[in-house]
Simulated scan of single mutants.
Amino acid sequence: MIMEQEQAVICITHLPIVPHRRDDGHKGDYGHALVVAGQVGMSGAACLAGKAALRGGAGLVTVATPISIQPTIAAYEPSYLTLGLPETHGAIGFGALEAIHRALHVATAVAIGPGLGTAEPARQIVRALYRSLPIPMIIDADGLNVLAASGDDLSRDSGAGARIMTPHPGEFARLTGETTATIQAAREKFANEFARRHGLTVVLKGKETVVTDGYRMAINTTGNSGMATGGTGDVLTGLLTALVAQKLPPFEAAQLAVWLHGRAGDIAAEKHSQPGLIASDLLDYLGSAWLEIGA
Protein backbone atom coordinates (compact mmCIF):
# COMPACT_ATOMS: atom_id res chain seq x y z
CA MET A 1 0.00 0.00 0.00
CA ILE A 2 1.27 3.48 -0.89
CA MET A 3 -0.16 6.57 0.78
CA GLU A 4 0.49 10.10 -0.40
CA GLN A 5 1.63 12.43 2.37
CA GLU A 6 2.12 16.15 2.70
CA GLN A 7 4.99 17.62 0.61
CA ALA A 8 4.91 14.66 -1.80
CA VAL A 9 6.26 12.25 0.82
CA ILE A 10 5.39 8.62 0.19
CA CYS A 11 5.00 6.19 3.05
CA ILE A 12 6.16 2.75 1.89
CA THR A 13 4.98 -0.27 3.84
CA HIS A 14 7.00 -3.07 2.19
CA LEU A 15 10.67 -3.88 2.55
CA PRO A 16 13.17 -3.39 -0.28
CA ILE A 17 14.64 -6.33 -2.11
CA VAL A 18 17.44 -8.07 -0.24
CA PRO A 19 20.89 -7.69 -1.88
CA HIS A 20 21.41 -10.66 -4.18
CA ARG A 21 24.24 -13.09 -3.49
CA ARG A 22 25.31 -15.18 -6.48
CA ASP A 23 26.19 -18.83 -6.04
CA ASP A 24 29.66 -18.09 -7.40
CA GLY A 25 30.11 -14.80 -5.52
CA HIS A 26 33.26 -13.91 -3.59
CA LYS A 27 33.99 -11.41 -0.84
CA GLY A 28 34.96 -8.72 -3.32
CA ASP A 29 31.41 -8.76 -4.69
CA TYR A 30 29.81 -7.65 -1.43
CA GLY A 31 31.51 -4.42 -0.58
CA HIS A 32 34.12 -3.21 1.88
CA ALA A 33 32.78 -1.33 4.91
CA LEU A 34 35.19 1.00 6.72
CA VAL A 35 34.14 1.85 10.27
CA VAL A 36 35.95 4.76 11.97
CA ALA A 37 35.14 4.43 15.65
CA GLY A 38 36.28 4.12 19.23
CA GLN A 39 38.58 5.63 21.83
CA VAL A 40 39.92 4.46 25.17
CA GLY A 41 36.90 3.56 27.28
CA MET A 42 34.67 3.25 24.20
CA SER A 43 36.20 0.31 22.39
CA GLY A 44 32.90 -1.56 22.59
CA ALA A 45 31.27 0.86 20.17
CA ALA A 46 33.84 0.00 17.51
CA CYS A 47 33.51 -3.74 18.21
CA LEU A 48 29.73 -3.74 17.92
CA ALA A 49 29.66 -1.63 14.75
CA GLY A 50 32.37 -3.72 13.11
CA LYS A 51 30.74 -7.06 13.85
CA ALA A 52 27.32 -5.75 12.83
CA ALA A 53 28.78 -4.80 9.45
CA LEU A 54 29.86 -8.43 9.05
CA ARG A 55 26.39 -9.64 10.04
CA GLY A 56 24.98 -7.22 7.49
CA GLY A 57 26.68 -9.14 4.70
CA ALA A 58 29.66 -6.95 3.82
CA GLY A 59 32.36 -8.95 2.10
CA LEU A 60 35.10 -7.15 4.01
CA VAL A 61 35.03 -4.90 7.07
CA THR A 62 37.85 -2.73 8.42
CA VAL A 63 37.60 -1.07 11.82
CA ALA A 64 39.83 2.02 12.02
CA THR A 65 40.50 2.99 15.61
CA PRO A 66 43.14 4.54 17.88
CA ILE A 67 46.18 2.30 17.89
CA SER A 68 46.19 1.66 21.64
CA ILE A 69 42.81 -0.10 21.53
CA GLN A 70 43.41 -1.85 18.21
CA PRO A 71 44.44 -5.13 19.94
CA THR A 72 41.28 -5.12 22.07
CA ILE A 73 39.08 -4.62 19.04
CA ALA A 74 40.94 -7.20 16.98
CA ALA A 75 40.51 -9.76 19.80
CA TYR A 76 36.74 -9.25 19.91
CA GLU A 77 36.14 -10.59 16.39
CA PRO A 78 38.72 -12.21 14.10
CA SER A 79 36.60 -11.81 10.96
CA TYR A 80 37.15 -8.09 10.42
CA LEU A 81 40.35 -6.20 9.68
CA THR A 82 41.65 -3.45 11.93
CA LEU A 83 43.58 -0.27 11.19
CA GLY A 84 45.46 1.46 13.99
CA LEU A 85 45.23 5.25 13.83
CA PRO A 86 47.48 7.90 15.38
CA GLU A 87 46.06 9.01 18.69
CA THR A 88 46.21 11.69 21.36
CA HIS A 89 45.37 10.75 24.95
CA GLY A 90 43.60 7.59 23.84
CA ALA A 91 41.41 9.26 21.22
CA ILE A 92 41.82 9.66 17.48
CA GLY A 93 44.69 12.08 16.86
CA PHE A 94 46.23 14.37 14.29
CA GLY A 95 47.58 12.37 11.36
CA ALA A 96 44.64 9.95 11.44
CA LEU A 97 42.99 11.58 8.43
CA GLU A 98 45.94 10.68 6.22
CA ALA A 99 45.80 7.06 7.42
CA ILE A 100 42.06 6.91 6.75
CA HIS A 101 42.53 8.34 3.25
CA ARG A 102 45.01 5.55 2.47
CA ALA A 103 42.33 2.99 3.37
CA LEU A 104 39.60 4.64 1.33
CA HIS A 105 40.72 3.28 -2.03
CA VAL A 106 39.19 -0.10 -1.17
CA ALA A 107 36.13 1.03 0.80
CA THR A 108 32.65 1.17 -0.72
CA ALA A 109 30.99 2.82 2.30
CA VAL A 110 32.27 4.53 5.46
CA ALA A 111 30.75 4.88 8.92
CA ILE A 112 32.07 7.41 11.39
CA GLY A 113 31.19 8.37 14.92
CA PRO A 114 30.54 5.52 17.38
CA GLY A 115 32.65 6.13 20.47
CA LEU A 116 34.87 8.53 18.54
CA GLY A 117 34.88 11.55 20.87
CA THR A 118 34.73 15.19 19.85
CA ALA A 119 38.30 16.43 20.38
CA GLU A 120 39.78 18.65 17.68
CA PRO A 121 41.36 15.84 15.58
CA ALA A 122 38.01 14.04 15.45
CA ARG A 123 36.23 17.26 14.52
CA GLN A 124 38.61 17.89 11.65
CA ILE A 125 38.25 14.34 10.33
CA VAL A 126 34.46 14.26 10.51
CA ARG A 127 34.09 17.63 8.78
CA ALA A 128 36.63 16.84 6.07
CA LEU A 129 35.11 13.46 5.22
CA TYR A 130 31.55 14.76 5.40
CA ARG A 131 32.29 17.57 3.00
CA SER A 132 34.24 15.73 0.32
CA LEU A 133 34.22 11.92 0.64
CA PRO A 134 33.08 10.60 -2.76
CA ILE A 135 31.56 7.37 -1.43
CA PRO A 136 28.50 6.95 0.83
CA MET A 137 29.03 7.93 4.47
CA ILE A 138 26.98 7.00 7.52
CA ILE A 139 27.27 9.48 10.42
CA ASP A 140 26.30 8.49 13.95
CA ALA A 141 26.92 9.42 17.59
CA ASP A 142 29.94 11.71 18.01
CA GLY A 143 30.04 12.26 14.26
CA LEU A 144 26.62 13.89 14.58
CA ASN A 145 27.71 15.88 17.62
CA VAL A 146 30.63 17.29 15.65
CA LEU A 147 28.36 18.34 12.79
CA ALA A 148 25.83 19.83 15.20
CA ALA A 149 28.57 22.07 16.58
CA SER A 150 29.18 23.33 13.03
CA GLY A 151 25.81 25.07 12.97
CA ASP A 152 23.60 24.87 9.89
CA ASP A 153 26.48 24.53 7.41
CA LEU A 154 26.08 20.98 6.13
CA SER A 155 27.10 21.79 2.57
CA ARG A 156 29.16 19.31 0.57
CA ASP A 157 31.40 19.40 -2.46
CA SER A 158 29.80 18.55 -5.79
CA GLY A 159 31.56 15.17 -5.94
CA ALA A 160 30.58 14.06 -2.45
CA GLY A 161 28.69 10.79 -2.08
CA ALA A 162 25.42 10.05 -0.34
CA ARG A 163 25.10 10.89 3.35
CA ILE A 164 22.98 9.06 5.92
CA MET A 165 22.52 10.37 9.47
CA THR A 166 21.28 8.11 12.26
CA PRO A 167 20.46 10.39 15.22
CA HIS A 168 18.49 9.62 18.34
CA PRO A 169 16.10 12.45 19.32
CA GLY A 170 18.67 14.24 21.49
CA GLU A 171 21.27 14.25 18.72
CA PHE A 172 18.68 15.39 16.22
CA ALA A 173 17.65 18.22 18.53
CA ARG A 174 21.26 19.43 18.57
CA LEU A 175 21.45 19.20 14.77
CA THR A 176 18.27 21.21 14.28
CA GLY A 177 18.51 23.63 17.19
CA GLU A 178 15.14 22.46 18.51
CA THR A 179 14.40 20.88 21.86
CA THR A 180 14.08 17.13 22.18
CA ALA A 181 10.45 17.53 23.24
CA THR A 182 9.70 19.59 20.14
CA ILE A 183 11.30 16.95 17.91
CA GLN A 184 9.39 14.13 19.58
CA ALA A 185 6.10 15.96 19.09
CA ALA A 186 6.55 16.05 15.29
CA ARG A 187 9.18 13.45 14.40
CA GLU A 188 8.11 12.85 10.81
CA LYS A 189 7.84 16.54 9.99
CA PHE A 190 11.26 17.51 11.32
CA ALA A 191 13.05 14.49 9.85
CA ASN A 192 11.50 15.05 6.43
CA GLU A 193 12.28 18.78 6.34
CA PHE A 194 15.87 18.28 7.48
CA ALA A 195 16.52 15.51 4.96
CA ARG A 196 15.11 17.54 2.08
CA ARG A 197 16.93 20.75 3.05
CA HIS A 198 20.32 19.07 3.27
CA GLY A 199 19.95 16.44 0.55
CA LEU A 200 20.54 13.38 2.70
CA THR A 201 18.80 10.43 4.33
CA VAL A 202 17.74 10.67 7.98
CA VAL A 203 17.14 7.73 10.30
CA LEU A 204 15.48 9.27 13.36
CA LYS A 205 15.71 6.50 15.92
CA GLY A 206 13.21 5.61 18.64
CA LYS A 207 9.81 3.98 18.80
CA GLU A 208 8.66 3.74 15.18
CA THR A 209 11.97 4.88 13.73
CA VAL A 210 11.50 7.35 10.88
CA VAL A 211 13.45 6.85 7.65
CA THR A 212 13.23 9.64 5.08
CA ASP A 213 15.15 11.17 2.20
CA GLY A 214 12.84 14.18 2.17
CA TYR A 215 10.60 12.70 -0.53
CA ARG A 216 9.88 9.20 0.70
CA MET A 217 9.22 8.06 4.24
CA ALA A 218 9.14 4.70 5.99
CA ILE A 219 8.00 4.17 9.57
CA ASN A 220 9.54 1.08 11.15
CA THR A 221 7.35 -1.39 13.02
CA THR A 222 9.93 -3.70 14.63
CA GLY A 223 11.82 -3.31 17.89
CA ASN A 224 11.01 -2.97 21.59
CA SER A 225 12.01 -1.02 24.68
CA GLY A 226 14.57 -3.63 25.66
CA MET A 227 16.72 -2.09 22.92
CA ALA A 228 16.98 1.12 24.96
CA THR A 229 20.43 0.10 26.15
CA GLY A 230 23.96 1.18 25.33
CA GLY A 231 25.42 -0.06 22.08
CA THR A 232 22.30 -0.87 20.07
CA GLY A 233 22.80 2.24 17.95
CA ASP A 234 26.33 1.09 17.14
CA VAL A 235 24.91 -2.18 15.86
CA LEU A 236 22.52 -0.29 13.59
CA THR A 237 25.37 1.84 12.24
CA GLY A 238 27.43 -1.19 11.27
CA LEU A 239 24.46 -3.02 9.75
CA LEU A 240 23.45 -0.01 7.68
CA THR A 241 27.01 0.55 6.48
CA ALA A 242 27.19 -3.03 5.26
CA LEU A 243 24.02 -2.66 3.21
CA VAL A 244 25.21 0.58 1.64
CA ALA A 245 28.60 -1.01 0.96
CA GLN A 246 26.73 -3.65 -1.06
CA LYS A 247 25.32 -0.86 -3.27
CA LEU A 248 21.84 -0.78 -1.85
CA PRO A 249 20.56 2.82 -2.30
CA PRO A 250 20.60 4.88 0.92
CA PHE A 251 16.85 5.07 1.56
CA GLU A 252 16.31 1.39 0.84
CA ALA A 253 19.37 0.39 2.87
CA ALA A 254 18.17 2.42 5.85
CA GLN A 255 14.66 1.00 5.65
CA LEU A 256 15.97 -2.58 5.56
CA ALA A 257 18.57 -1.96 8.27
CA VAL A 258 16.12 -0.59 10.81
CA TRP A 259 13.70 -3.45 10.18
CA LEU A 260 16.39 -6.12 10.60
CA HIS A 261 17.81 -4.34 13.64
CA GLY A 262 14.42 -4.13 15.33
CA ARG A 263 13.46 -7.68 14.41
CA ALA A 264 16.72 -9.01 15.85
CA GLY A 265 15.83 -7.09 19.00
CA ASP A 266 12.38 -8.66 19.09
CA ILE A 267 13.81 -12.16 18.76
CA ALA A 268 16.43 -11.40 21.41
CA ALA A 269 13.73 -10.17 23.79
CA GLU A 270 11.77 -13.38 23.27
CA LYS A 271 14.87 -15.33 24.33
CA HIS A 272 16.29 -13.11 27.07
CA SER A 273 13.44 -10.74 28.07
CA GLN A 274 13.41 -6.99 27.44
CA PRO A 275 15.21 -6.11 30.69
CA GLY A 276 17.83 -8.76 30.01
CA LEU A 277 18.55 -7.70 26.43
CA ILE A 278 22.01 -6.26 25.66
CA ALA A 279 23.36 -4.84 22.42
CA SER A 280 25.54 -7.81 21.56
CA ASP A 281 22.43 -10.04 21.62
CA LEU A 282 21.33 -8.29 18.42
CA LEU A 283 24.43 -9.60 16.68
CA ASP A 284 23.42 -13.15 17.61
CA TYR A 285 19.92 -12.81 16.16
CA LEU A 286 20.50 -10.78 13.00
CA GLY A 287 20.86 -14.07 11.13
CA SER A 288 17.38 -15.14 12.27
CA ALA A 289 15.98 -11.80 11.15
CA TRP A 290 17.59 -12.22 7.72
CA LEU A 291 16.04 -15.68 7.39
CA GLU A 292 12.56 -14.29 8.02
CA ILE A 293 12.79 -12.24 4.83
CA GLY A 294 14.18 -15.07 2.75
CA ALA A 295 17.87 -14.17 2.72
Results as ranks from 00 to 15, higher is better:
residue 183 I to E: 11
residue 160 A to F: 12
residue 234 D to Y: 10
residue 138 I to M: 01
residue 174 R to A: 13
residue 199 G to D: 13
residue 181 A to H: 14
residue 204 L to Q: 05
residue 226 G to K: 02
residue 235 V to A: 11
residue 175 L to R: 02
residue 144 L to I: 05
residue 135 I to W: 08
residue 143 G to F: 02
residue 147 L to V: 00
residue 237 T to M: 11
residue 186 A to R: 15
residue 210 V to H: 03
residue 224 N to K: 05
residue 209 T to Y: 06
residue 151 G to F: 08
residue 132 S to Y: 00
residue 225 S to D: 11
residue 128 A to H: 15
residue 170 G to K: 09
residue 144 L to R: 10
residue 166 T to I: 05
residue 196 R to V: 11
residue 174 R to Y: 12
residue 156 R to V: 14
residue 196 R to I: 03
residue 147 L to M: 15
residue 177 G to T: 10
residue 189 K to A: 09
residue 137 M to T: 10
residue 212 T to H: 09
residue 158 S to P: 10
residue 185 A to H: 10
residue 227 M to L: 14
residue 193 E to P: 07
residue 194 F to I: 11
residue 234 D to Q: 10
residue 207 K to T: 14
residue 182 T to P: 03
residue 149 A to L: 06
residue 139 I to N: 02
residue 232 T to K: 04
residue 160 A to L: 10
residue 220 N to E: 07
residue 213 D to S: 09
residue 184 Q to T: 07
residue 137 M to N: 09
residue 154 L to M: 11
residue 167 P to L: 12
residue 241 T to D: 07
residue 150 S to I: 01
residue 146 V to Y: 00
residue 159 G to V: 08
residue 236 L to W: 08
residue 177 G to K: 02
residue 130 Y to L: 02
residue 129 L to P: 00
residue 164 I to N: 00
residue 151 G to S: 05
residue 237 T to N: 07
residue 149 A to C: 12
residue 160 A to D: 04
residue 168 H to N: 15
residue 206 G to Q: 12
residue 139 I to H: 01
residue 179 T to V: 04
residue 139 I to A: 02
residue 166 T to K: 08
residue 173 A to H: 08
residue 217 M to V: 14
residue 172 F to W: 05
residue 187 R to M: 11
residue 147 L to E: 04
residue 214 G to V: 04
residue 143 G to P: 12
residue 227 M to T: 09
residue 186 A to S: 12
residue 208 E to D: 07
residue 204 L to G: 05
residue 212 T to G: 00
residue 131 R to N: 12
residue 130 Y to M: 00
residue 165 M to Y: 13
residue 223 G to K: 06
residue 144 L to P: 11
residue 229 T to H: 08
residue 198 H to C: 13
residue 147 L to G: 08
